[in-house]
Amino acid sequence: MTVTNGRPAVDAGTVLPEWELPAVSAEKMKTMALVLADPNPIHFDLDSVRELGMGDRPVNQGPNNLAYVMNMLAVWSGGHEHLRGIRVRFRGNVLGGDRVVARGTVSGLRDEAECVLADCDVELVVDEKVVLAGTATVDVTHLTGSAQ
């Protein structure tokens, strides 16, 4: 189903606009440690990171990496309120200073309860290495212009 109706077409195979963060902030990991009540020092204490043999850059919280993919879906769909679900596997670490890119492709459209839902394959990459991958479902009724 491809419906233009003066709006962006959405169909299986549609490539979503990439979302990029040029450099993950180490400072913001400290804020997130408080938001998540996450005491793991690998996110904020460089001495601990070094003692654990994990290099000299802090490790980004996994939920932050998930949020970057959510941001990509929101920019594409017009807001966070359109996200219906997301399932991901954490496959690698993102470190302070890394450039991350979230990207995705629509794998199919389906009708459900008077809505048009787009199932998407999504991933987050650092230097073309996939650090998070999975699927997401977004309500795109407003993009297709069709209330079923």
Partner: peptide
Amino acid sequence: LNDVVESPRDGRVAHPL
């Protein structure tokens, strides 16, 4: 949270994270 994850803040709808 929106500042941390570089998302525009809506003020009504919370970030899905």
